[in-house]
Amino acid sequence: MSTTTSTASPAELAAHHGLAPSSARPAFLTYVSQLWQRRHFIASFATSRTATQYSGARLGQLWQLLTPLMNAGVYYLIFGILFNSAGRMDNFIAFLVTGVFIFTFTQRSVTSGARAISGNLSLIRALHFPRAALPFSSTIVELQQMLVSLAVLCVIVLLTGEPITWAWLTIIPAIALQTIFNTGLSLAIARVGSRIPDISQLLPFLTRTWLYLSGVFFSIPQRVHNSTLQDLMMANPATVYIELVRDAFINRHDAPNHAWILAISWAVVAFCIGFWYFWAAEEKYGRG
């Protein structure tokens, strides 16, 4: 027996032979490269999830189209016809439907992010992969749904009499930025959801409050007259992304000042904080 090992603690012995803790969190950059290495898994997992999402329903994938259409219909019935918000606005249908669809993308990303870890515990306890792959792929599932909705949206907007313009192209960067923002949010909420399952019960109320604050059914400048409050509400990330897409689709609608700067800032801030926050608990996700 050598003297070095007989007095060594297990940790020193492990270090001596080059053993590493089995559930250690990888360094941040290592983690990023591991995640990049699993990009095919992320994409493939997302596509499979999309494919099976409606496999229990008779109409199957058709619900991907029907869900946004029916949503738009319900809001049109209540806000367009019953409350008659349409009165003061040019193209209320396009205004409303754009708002609903864009907001739904963020809302669904948050909701599915909250379940990304807690709903896949058996997978986490069976296989090794960077756990961030799960919230990433749940956001991609929602992006795929969003792209279908976007096609529906284009048709609706055309039907309301808006022309196709070059401005439509700005929808691509707007949605891309929104996706980055959603990913960050979904990463952060995934960590919270893995520790506090109650968040799933609370989220519908939070997202609904957010929905009403985001100027989906009404024009914020028309309804909110206090200028500080108005500025605050217009800086809300959901509003920013909605306004950018409305600006692209609706000829007589203008995005507020600095909308692009805000859109970029929100995306970068949410993604960086969300990703770092998620990574900081990487080794704890298996415990549930």
Binding site: P10, A11, A14, L19, A20, P21, S22, S23, A24, I124, R125, A126, L127, H128, E283, K284, G286, R287
Partner: peptide, 11 residues
Amino acid sequence: GLLPPTRGAVF
């Protein structure tokens, strides 16, 4: 390494 230790360690 799939379940994090509550106490102690695995190398």
